[in-house]
């Protein structure tokens, strides 16, 4: 059971927005019901309920890998900050990840950077959702 392969296969399979959206729905529903590490079938193929960032953290725990993921997390957080939707705890996670790198705990650094990057990605998603849907909350 190779997680990397499953995930790559999943994403290659999303040729249109509609398909991507329905994959996203299937993914979220399965993650919501079973947590991580669950295998589900979507359009005849098998996938796991692992976040993109969790896959990125499941690499060899080296300094180079930790630094690379931390850089990606920082870039993602800069992107969400630009939109005005940065979350409160993300910069703290980035700092903790740097500290873990300095202390040689690369797995911890990878995990923290993964969480920070996930938070930033969700913030971006939240921004786009708000742009399209904020009006639903207004009393008429």
């Amino acid at each position: 059971m190779n997680k990397g392969l499953i995930i790559a296969a999943v994403l290659a399979l999303a040729p249109t927005f509609a398909a991507a959206e329905s994959f996203q729905n299937a993914f979220e529903m399965n993650r919501a019901m079973y947590g991580k590490g669950h295998v589900f079938t979507w359009q005849g193929k098998q996938y796991t309920t692992q976040h993109e960032e969790e896959a990125e953290a499941a690499v060899k725990a080296t300094k180079a890998n930790a630094e690379a993921l931390l850089d990606k997390a920082k870039a993602k957080n800069a992107e969400v900050a630009e939109l005005g939707y940065e979350w409160k705890l993300t910069r703290g996670l980035l700092k903790e990840a740097q500290t873990a790198i300095d202390e040689g705990d690369y797995q911890k650094a990878l995990n923290l950077a993964a969480q920070a990057k996930y938070h930033a990605r969700m913030g971006i998603q939240q921004y786009h959702y708000a742009q399209a849907n904020w009006h639903l909350a207004v009393p008429q």
Partner: peptide, 18 residues
Amino acid sequence: MRKLSTSLCAAGLLAMVT
């Protein structure tokens, strides 16, 4: 986070099932 780290360290699904 403690538990999360443990699970992420796990090499594969088998470890998570355990």
